[in-house]
Design a protein around this nucleic acid. Structure first.
Length: 441
RNA sequence: CGGGGCGUAGCGCAGCCUGGUAGCGCAUCUGGUUUGGGACCAGAGGGUCGUAGGUUCAAAUCCUACCGCCCCGACCA
């Protein structure tokens, strides 16, 4: 409730190691603390934001009836040998030997593990489809981690897996996640473009990357501007509606540089509709059929026969999204973060003017706090004795979207209420509550 | 892994070239005056100078090795 009690080590200088704004600001506002190259601790402010993102991801996964599980971070090499990826994955996989000299690894992804769970549990096609997801730490030993949590070695990721009887059903599952991701990014107030993608070491034949536009992005992208007009408002969860949704996106040219071809781009997209820019990959979905189910013998009985299940996998970089949102929504002019209210570390901050001799504003702020709390508004009181303006600036920097100022201009009924970046207005507390709560979704 | 750079107080830096036992700004603590867009005055605390070895009467400074971190490239949610 009180800012003075929080572990939020704000710095006035940017740490020199940070080069991009999300990294700088996350260090400056004490959201994260580097532990070693590409490995970070999450301090209260950063952790709170990440948890809010995680919860939205969870809600959107549950909405398509995906079931949440939790698989371990440490895996046995055995199943990776079965799938053939133990050799293929290479140096990026962190390998560990336990005291019995068993080969273990810190999971970079979970196709093998989830397939193992599936094959031991599901025997009949009648139990299909199965959509499973978990939100768990992953480790990929990047050659060169950089940009803070944007490209780190240990990262927090939602990964989901689908199991279906045939390709038609499999694609239906794939499309459910496609929609789920569009809804997710919308709630995070991000414009994400689904782009045809290479399948990389995961393998398969159908894949989309979800990219948000940001100057500091690592992926070069080439797209038809009209893709931004496609929306998913009226899409329902049935095969036809989902298929149409994907067709509406897929008909526009939208690729990263791996798949870019200039001749094709010029042929398919009118000059004035061409957009060449950079983006951040925040989600990636794959359909790869029986790539893992076959070598790992994951099958169901159907019509008297054994049928290998058709699989897909669906990732969202939860920790990366924290940085990605900063990159995408940053206030260039004032160098402040701007959090969408759904994931803001606090929805509202109360800033009372306090001196050693006069604490009446602090008492007032407690009353306001309690009222906001009753109405489910996530609020913090800045009870420090810093200068009034210094407190305002601090919360502009952190990106708390709303401020209630209890200072010289305060009277009893009408509170001074301010949206970051705008002039303050005098409002009754009930109106303030209504405004804030109307912005959440 | 190739190329470049850096390591001195919580953060940003100076000192190193030319060896003589550590300094500045911010932050922190105490007291006071302040408070509407990152205040001011006075005082205080905090550093085995990345680690180990060597040269020297003497090493943050010179030499060697190692460790860590950052940047550019090839690879990636």
């Amino acid at each position: 409730m009180f800012f003075s009690n929080l572990l939020v080590p704000i710095l006035k200088n940017n740490p020199s190691e940070a080069k991009i704004k999300s990294h700088k600001l996350m260090l400056r506002t004490g959201m994260i603390k580097q532990s070693s190259a590409g490995i970070y601790s999450w301090l209260p402010l950063g952790f709170k934001i990440m948890k809010k993102i995680e919860n939205i991801v969870r809600e959107e996964q549950n909405r398509i009836n995906a079931q949440e599980i939790l698989m371990p971070t440490i895996q046995s090499s055995d199943i990776w040998k079965e799938s053939g990826r133990y050799e293929d994955y290479g140096e990026e996989m962190l390998r560990i030997t336990d005291r019995q000299k068993r080969e273990m690894l810190y999971g970079p992804t979970n196709e093998e593990l989830v397939t193992d769970i599936f094959r031991n549990s599901i025997k009949s096609y009648k139990s299909l489809p199965q959509l499973l997801y978990h939100i768990q730490w992953k480790f990929r030993d990047e050659l060169r981690p950089r940009f803070g949590i944007m490209r780190c070695r240990e990262f927090y990721m939602k990964d989901a897996y689908s199991f279906d009887l045939n390709d038609d059903e499999g694609e239906y599952s794939y499309n459910k996640f496609f929609l789920s991701y569009l809804k997710l990014f919308k709630r995070l107030d991000l414009k994400a473009i689904p782009m045809a993608a290479d399948t990389g070491p995961i393998g398969g034949n159908l894949s989309h990357e979800f990219i948000i536009l940001a100057e500091t992005g690592e992926s070069k992208i080439y797209t038809d501007k009209n893709i931004f007009e496609v929306n998913h408002q009226n899409c329902e969860i049935n095969k036809i509606s989902l298929e149409n949704l994907r067709k509406n996106f897929d008909k526009y040219y939208a690729v990263t540089d791996e798949k870019y071809n200039k001749i094709e781009f010029d042929k398919l997209v009118k000059k004035e509709d061409q957009l060449e820019t950079k983006g951040i990959e925040v989600g990636h979905i794959f359909y790869f059929g029986d790539k893992y189910s076959k070598p790992m013998n994951a099958s169901v009985d159907y019509d008297g026969k054994k049928v290998f299940v058709k699989m897909g996998s669906y990732g969202v970089g939860v920790s990366r999204l924290v940085g990605a949102i900063i990159e995408a929504k940053f206030d260039e002019k004032n160098e402040n973060m701007i959090w969408p209210i759904n994931v803001a570390p606090y929805e509202c901050v109360i800033i009372p003017l306090i001196s050693k001799s006069d604490k009446t504003n602090l008492e007032k702020s407690m009353k306001v706090f309690n009222k906001l709390k009753e109405n489910k508004i996530d609020t913090i009181i800045d009870n420090t004795e810093e200068n009034f303006s210094s407190k305002m600036k601090k919360f502009n920097l952190i990106g708390v979207p709303y401020q209630i100022l209890l200072g010289k201009k305060t009277d009893d009924d009408m509170l001074e209420f301010k949206k970051v970046g705008e002039e303050s207005v005098k409002l009754k507390i009930d109106e303030i509550i209504k405004i804030i709560n109307s912005k959440k979704n």
